[in-house]
Structures are given as C-alpha cells and as structure tokens.
Simulated assay, not measured.
Amino acid sequence: MTSAETHGETVLTEHFANVRGVRLAWFEARQTGVPVLALHGHFGRGRAFAALAESLAPRHRVIALEQRGHGHSGRGDGDFSPDAYVADAADFLRGLGLGPVVVLGHSMGGVTAFRLAARHPDLVRALIVEDGGAFNRRPDIPHPVLDVRGWPRRAPTLAALRRAIEAQGIPDAGYFLESAVEHPDGWGLLFDHDDMMASQQALVGDWWADWLGSRCPALLVHGLDSFVLPTAMAREMAARRPGTVLRELPGCGHWAHDDDPAAFAAAVREFLDTLEP
C-alpha cells in the first residue's frame, strides 16, 4: 500500500511494511540511487528528510523510516527500548533486501544508527549521526527527557495547538507540529505522550560502547548551538572513534537539518562522496 504527499516542494511516496509485527511507515522521493536509510529523532517524522532527499538526488535514494510510535507507524507492543528500535531498523532493511547501506540518524535516530552499526555490521557501510550523543545522562546532559505529560491532547485549531505547546516553554512548536493532525474532536499529535516519555527515559544511559563498537566510516554533524549534545562531547566522540569526521555547523542547534538545510546537505554530500562506490 502506498500513497503520496507533498512536503515543501518535494513529493514523497509513503509506504508501509510489517516489521516484527508492527506496521511501520516509510517515505521516499524516488526509487533510484544508492540507498541511505534515514532515522528521525523523538517526536519526529520520516518526511522531515524531504529536503535532504531532494538535495542528494539523483545519486542517492533517501529511505526515511518512521519509527514505532511515531508518525503513521504503529506502536506495536509498547516496547520503546533502544533495542526495539535497532531490531526494527535491522529487520526493515532485511525486508527490503538492502544492506550494507549508509545509515543516517538524528538525535535518538542517531543513537539507533550507531547501535545498529555496532550490532549488525553487515547492514551498515557508513554512519551519519546528527547530534546523537554517546552519553545521555545527568550531569553531562542537564535535560535528557522533555516532559510532555502536560501537553494538550486536543485543541480546537492548529493555531491553538501551537499556542498550547509553546505555552509549555517550547520556543517554536514547528518541529512537533509535523505530527499534528485533525481528529473528529479537534487537533492533536500523532504520537502518544506517555509512549514518548517511556521512549525518552529508556534512552537515558551510557552508549559509548556502541558508539565505539563499529569500524565503518562515520560523519558526526553537530550544531554548535545545540542544547542536547555538548560540543566537548561531540569532539570527544570524534577523537575516540577511528574513521570519524566531525562537522560543526555554526548558527545551528539540535535540528541542524532544519536550521541550515543547505549546510547540512552539503556536509552529508561531501561525506558520501568520500565513500567507495
């Protein structure tokens, strides 16, 4: 089953796959080119990579998976552990007959990406990690969990939903509103608030062993204004893992792909050009 939707100026085809008993959605802009698996972060959508897909075409084909509990994907049995996300990504790639591929991940998706490389090296030929840290625990990370338990479940309009989210201390709700849909009883978000709390809490931990557990080439993209990945940690991650290139993007925060899409795409493209065919 497929459908089409437009994100910006990019037309995306949405597909669905049964992965480990969970119905997962995934997007692509075209069916040709060297495949790149893209994994969003918490609260995100696969279609957030539409601009990147356009920038990398026609040489590369971005396959953006909506991870369990996000977007149009099902929540399965409610297991939102990091291991569940890794197992989903591995089975998804095998189901498409792909691998080894370049795997790109943002934030939580970045942790999934480098853990996938450590645990399933046959599926990953290179890594691109955007602001996903090897350590996610206080005191290094002051706020590893965004508390969304008090966020509105419904609002009468999309504008009202934005205002209600921003009233919770979010400066710009745009990222979260990618998941906004109109229900019979008003506007709400596709993800479940409690599921996202469980998923974030499960990601609190020390992931250094997984970051250092693969040997493939890697690009670490870090927004210098990020409040999630400290610059000192990003530099340590690059220094400790052989074959890792660090690209620091000034003027960008945690969502570098949104803050400066051109710079982010250029960093990704330059790295991809260094890989052997």
Rank of each mutant, 00 (worst) to 15 (best):
R241W: 01
P171Y: 06
D194A: 15
R154A: 06
D79L: 10
A118Q: 00
R153D: 15
A90D: 03
H254E: 14
V148L: 08
R125H: 10
R240H: 14
A234R: 00
P100I: 06
T274I: 07
A38H: 05
E9Y: 09
F191S: 10
M197P: 04
F80Y: 14
V111W: 10
A126Q: 11
A50V: 03
R138K: 14
A4Y: 08
M108I: 14
V19T: 15
P58S: 03
D260Q: 06
V102T: 15
A232F: 09
P277L: 08
P152K: 06
L104Y: 13
G69Q: 06
F43W: 13
F135N: 00
A180E: 05
A198F: 07
Q201K: 15
A267F: 03
R163F: 08
M108A: 14
A57T: 03
C252H: 02
A180H: 06
V268Q: 07
R61N: 11
Y175P: 02
W151C: 07
Q200E: 10
A238S: 00
F80L: 12
C216M: 14
L219S: 03
S107L: 15
S179P: 10
G105Q: 14
S81H: 01
E276A: 15
S199M: 04
A159G: 11
L98S: 10
T32G: 02
R125Q: 06
H60F: 12
F227P: 03
D147E: 02
A198Q: 09
G174C: 08
V129Q: 08
A234H: 04
A164D: 13
G44M: 07
D77N: 14
D259E: 12
R241K: 05
A53C: 03
V36Y: 05
L98Q: 12
V129H: 02
A126K: 07
F92K: 08
W208Y: 01
A89S: 14
L123N: 02
L116D: 02
A57K: 03
Q201W: 09
S199C: 12
E270N: 09
L123D: 11
A232W: 03
E130H: 11
R61S: 09
R20M: 11
G213Y: 00
A17N: 04
P230T: 13
G46A: 07
F176K: 03
A167S: 12
P144H: 03
S179Q: 11
T274D: 03
D131M: 05
A64K: 05
D88V: 12
R68C: 03
W255M: 13
L190K: 09
S73Q: 01
V245Y: 02
G41C: 05
T157I: 00
G8D: 14
A48M: 10
W255L: 12
G8N: 15
S107E: 13
A29T: 00
S107H: 12
M233E: 15
R47I: 02
E248L: 13
R162P: 11
N18M: 13
L219P: 02
A113I: 04
T157A: 01
S3P: 06
H193E: 08
S107D: 15
F271Q: 01
M196L: 13
G150F: 00
I128Y: 13
A117H: 02
S73E: 08
A239N: 08
G99K: 12
S3W: 09
A50M: 11
L52K: 07
G41I: 10
V111K: 15
Q200Y: 06
F92T: 12
Y85S: 02
H193A: 15
R68Q: 02
P100A: 04
G251Q: 10
H106Y: 07
A25L: 14
H42Q: 11
A48S: 15
S179K: 01
